[in-house]
């Protein structure tokens, strides 16, 4: 059962500390899992929606006791991934949306980004050669490199249906996870 159908969980998700999506929808949608916590939200593929996503990520990360360094790495990775989807996969299509699923475990956090835009395999994009002054002068193409260096693993898949799935996985510096009672979830290790 999805917790959002439970009136108690709905009340919890609607607390003042819980951010809303740019559409005004209540987030997070809490998916009931026996040994962990997964949050799922859909955001418009627009630049102004990325700030609230970062705020949301910070809120749940703090609730789960993630360290500041881990949170910063996750925030910048989620930010850069979302911008890449908005710009390169969707070409700034204002009607497009990105589905984001954040799974918190005892020792790691996995974030999945799902879109239906143009597929771009990050493995095919070489890191920027910052020793080249022209690369620095151009001042672009650093986002993917930040993601690569900020998380422990990333993976891209394009499904036959045209759906793009991009996963980032961050090993936590220490067992940062704790039961975030604010969102009425159970603790545990899913990752």
């Amino acid at each position: 059962m999805r917790d959002e159908e439970d009136p108690r969980a709905a009340a919890s998700a609607g607390s003042a500390a819980c951010p809303r999506s740019p559409d005004g929808e209540e987030v997070p949608t809490i998916l009931d899992k026996p040994n962990g916590a997964t949050y799922e939200l859909s955001i418009p593929a627009r630049i102004e929606a990325v700030g609230p996503l970062c705020a949301f990520l910070n809120t749940i990360g703090e609730c789960h006791g993630l360290t500041e360094v881990d949170l910063q790495a996750l925030e910048i990775s989620a930010y850069e991934t979302s911008l890449n989807i908005i710009e390169h996969a969707y070409g700034f299509d204002p009607e497009a949306r990105i589905l984001i699923r954040i799974s918190l475990g005892l020792r790691r956090v996995c974030i999945a980004f799902i879109d239906h835009g143009t597929g771009i395999d990050p493995e095919m994009i070489p890191p920027p050669d910052v020793r080249d002054p022209n690369v620095r002068r151009r001042g672009r193409g650093f986002g993917l490199q930040i993601i690569r260096k900020s998380v422990n693993r990333m993976r891209y898949r394009r499904l036959p249906s045209g759906e793009n799935r991009f996963f980032i996985l961050k090993e936590l510096a220490r067992n940062g996870y704790r039961d975030a009672g604010l969102f009425a979830m159970r603790g545990g290790d899913t990752a």
């Binding site: 970062c54 930010y79 850069e80 911008l83 620095r136 002068r137 001042g139 650093f142 986002g143």
Partner: peptide, 17 residues
């Protein structure tokens, strides 16, 4: 409190120029 890659790119570009 936060800077994205595009912001870093602006600064790198300015430094080079």
């Amino acid at each position: 409190s936060f800077i994205g890659s595009a912001g870093i790119g602006i600064f790198l570009s300015l430094v080079e120029e």
